[in-house]
Amino acid sequence: MTAGAATGGGKAIPILVVVVAIVGIWYAATIWLNTPWQRDVYQREGRDWTVSDLVADTMAQERPVLPAPHQVAIEIWQTTVEKKVTSKRSLVYHAWITLSATLAGFAMGTVLGVVLAVAIVHNRATDRSVMPWVIASQTIPILAIAPMIIVVLNAVGLSGLLPKALISTYLSFFPVVVGMVKGLRAPEAIQRDLMRTYSATAAQVFWKLRWPHSMPYLFASMKVAVAISLVGAIVGELPTGAVSGLGARLLAGSYYGQTVQIWSALLTAAALAAVLVSLVGVANSYVLRRMGARP
């Protein structure tokens, strides 16, 4: 009756129902939230209106409190397909700026996380002294101080992609460290003993036992890491004066009250996150299959 049984049955229909319900609630909220302003407009113009007029007009405002889903969809279509990719008004251009910082930060964070995890697993002093600080480092709201780091790095002459990527690195190394430490320690004593009876060196134990064993953990952490990298890159774009990137679109939209623009940037970011996470998932199943895991 709970998730155990739920995973067994088909998921497509329930998910579809939930998504349709969300869109339905969104439309209802659009009408409800936009009505006060629309009634003001009618009153000022002194014209009569029917309910169907009201419903149609609430979904066609220029700066609605909450834009209707189709307004956002049209805006996304206009700014992706109908604009040239190099144009500053193209969402593809802004998404690419954010994506490049995300991927750079994600790559650096993953490498840093794996290196730290290897050091932690192989050296007891590192384990005891570094591990508590790795955990403590995440209670510092780095996202909150990201703008300052960006501004300070800009003052030194570092600008563009790297500062944003560094924020993403800081955010994404943590899940990788925690997951990989767990993964590299996952081989059981009996398996390590077997390696010892083969008189395997530490390097051989690492490459033939610990590393393959840690792959599922690595991919699980990378899913979290790539999602959080994207958040880091977006927040990193906020303080640079709204030049480029999805974060800049959000900020510019909030300055000028362009709600449709905010929502289209938001949904693009959401789609980007979904694509990135599922790409890691695809890589995961490919690698596990190559390693001979049964599905």
Binding site: L143, V231, I234, V235, L250, L266, A269
Partner: peptide, 8 residues
């Protein structure tokens, strides 16, 4: 939960 909710 994986989305950049901070954007709202």
């Amino acid at each position: 939960s994986a989305l950049p909710i901070i954007g709202i």
